[in-house]
Amino acid sequence: MDKVIVAENLSLSYKEFETIISKATFSIDAGSFVFITGASGSGKSTLLKSFYGAIEPRQGQLSVGGVKMNHIGTSKLNFLRRHIGIVFQDYKLIKEWTIEKNVMLPLIISGYTSDVSGAQVQKLLAHVKLTHQAGKYPPELSGGEQQRVAMARALAHNPILILADEPTGNLDEYSSSVIWSLLEGANTQLKTTVVVVTHHIPEGLKVPYKHYHIEFGNINEIS
């Protein structure tokens, strides 16, 4: 099976003599669903950041989608990010843009024509049941709706990998279940690899998943 993420002796830190993740070796298969858990400050978000190049490996090797993340250049990083969908706890939607334009963002960046991207956005908004909100702005939507917009945006360009950082951290139970079902759908229907950083793994998930737990800088495979 192809590997989407491969880490060998990976160490991560923000400062030189600090260690957040220490000499971790693991790999994530293409099309798999992975949870990374850990206590607050354990380094799970830092690990996720390293997957989209916001932090470079201090030591060891890391490759994402076949791209080596050590000393990655800007153009290579931009290229990689155009094949990744990211979902954040605080949604990270552009407030001055309409919902429709927010969802369209990855397609604009990838250079799709307005006809193609328009059709894709309509399909995605229907999928996340927000067609009627297309012309509104993010602050006009509830937290659950904003996260559904962020999900639609993450799926817009058919990414090889979806990275989600506490995607339901700010949501109520109902909205959380909608987001989990969207992530499950992306994994089962589109065969997209999904990596989720979370405090708690939700109950009742239908997809098989892998679980890594971070403790004291070490990554342990739980299941």
């Binding site: 800007t74 931009n78 990270k92």
Partner: peptide, 13 residues
């Protein structure tokens, strides 16, 4: 904020 979000999705400078 907008520039950072766009960067996360691989937008060139």
């Amino acid at each position: 904020e907008r520039m950072n979000i766009m960067a996360l999705f691989g937008a060139p400078v």
